[in-house]
Simulated assay, not measured.
Amino acid sequence: MPSNPLSHHFPRIFHLASLHPPRDFYPIADTPICLEIGAGKGKHALLFASQNPDKHLYAIERTAIKFEAFDKQAGMANPPNLTAIHADAIAWTAFAVYPKQIQTCFILYPNPEPKNKNQRFLNMPFFELLLSKMADGGQIILASNIGDYIDEAERLLTEMWQLPYSKRQIESTSARTHFEIKYLARGERCQELIITKPGGYRTRFDETLPLHLSRSSSDEA
């Protein structure tokens, strides 16, 4: 482990001032939540909600076609502990989420961004803001079928973010997302990293309130 596991060495900073509130945005309560970034058509979100009735999942999908399919399925199942969000996850997290509010965050099979590795989650300044929103002991579940993506994420977790994690190979019978089903059916190796935020871990956003509060205060001043 790094000599100082309670901070990070990521050089770039996430600039909140450039963000705009998501369309049709509404605030959420400051209570523990789970978050899924890139929910697709909602297969994992609906499964998680049914298996964890004591946890509330906010599942975000940016793409209109995928969200329409997700919203339709969520409307038919109507789980009380699932909220489907059509928005950019970065802006929504910045405007809606309180410090240390997220218990578990799922990032399942994100776009590997082969032409721009700086857009990969662990190589983005946004990841620091996300960490500030994670509860002490909270976990980020990152899954991919691309070995190089997982290898790079491991290196960044150790060298830059200084975060503990475990890695596991996903069983061939797993069926959390449509991508996961497709990749496993093709015989591809799917892996996930289970990243834990230690108590006392520090970021530069630890005292940053949701932007809907901070900007409202500025407007009233």
Rank of each mutant, 00 (worst) to 15 (best):
I33E: 00
H8L: 01
Y98W: 09
L193N: 00
L122W: 00
P80Q: 15
I28H: 03
P27G: 06
N81K: 07
C34Y: 06
A94S: 07
G38Q: 04
I194A: 09
Q139V: 08
S214V: 05
E159L: 09
K100H: 10
Y201H: 01
N52E: 12
K115E: 12
D148E: 14
R168L: 06
Y183W: 13
Y98I: 01
Q103F: 09
K197H: 07
Q191K: 08
S50C: 06
E36C: 02
E188F: 11
P198R: 09
H178Y: 12
A135V: 07
Y109E: 09
L163W: 04
A45R: 05
L209H: 05
R176E: 09
D71H: 10
T104L: 02
G40N: 07
F67H: 04
Y109I: 06
A45I: 08
E171C: 06
W92L: 05
R120L: 07
E159Q: 05
E128L: 00
K41F: 13
A64H: 15
E128W: 03
I37S: 05
I141D: 03
K115G: 05
L16C: 00
N4K: 10
F48D: 02
D24M: 12
M76H: 14
P112D: 08
P27K: 05
Y98M: 02
K197D: 03
P112Q: 07
P53L: 13
M160V: 11
L6Q: 04
N78C: 13
T104F: 02
A49Y: 10
R155Y: 14
L163D: 01
N123I: 01
P110N: 07
R204G: 09
R215G: 05
M160Y: 10
Y183D: 08
G199N: 10
N123F: 10
T31S: 15
D71G: 06
T177G: 02
N81G: 05
F67R: 03
G187K: 07
F106Y: 10
L57D: 08
V97I: 10
D24I: 05
E159C: 07
K72Q: 14
L184W: 01
P2H: 15
D151C: 09
M124N: 13
D54Q: 15
N52P: 12
P32I: 04
L82D: 01
A45Y: 04
Y58A: 08
Y109V: 06
M160Q: 11
P53M: 11
K117E: 13
R120W: 06
L46C: 02
S3W: 10
L46D: 01
A185E: 13
F48N: 03
S132R: 02
D219I: 15
F205Y: 15
H8P: 01
I141L: 11
I102E: 08
D136F: 06
L163V: 05
D88W: 00
A64S: 15
I194G: 04
P210M: 05
P99E: 03
N78L: 14
A74T: 11
L129T: 02
I90T: 11
I90P: 02
F205P: 09
S144N: 03
F25V: 01
D54W: 12
H15M: 13
H178S: 14
C190Q: 07
K115M: 12
R202K: 11
R12M: 09
P21H: 03
F67N: 04
P22I: 00
E36K: 01
C105S: 07
Q191A: 10
P21D: 01
A29G: 09
A221N: 15
Y165A: 04
A74C: 11
R155K: 14
R176M: 12
Y26N: 12
D206M: 02
I102K: 01
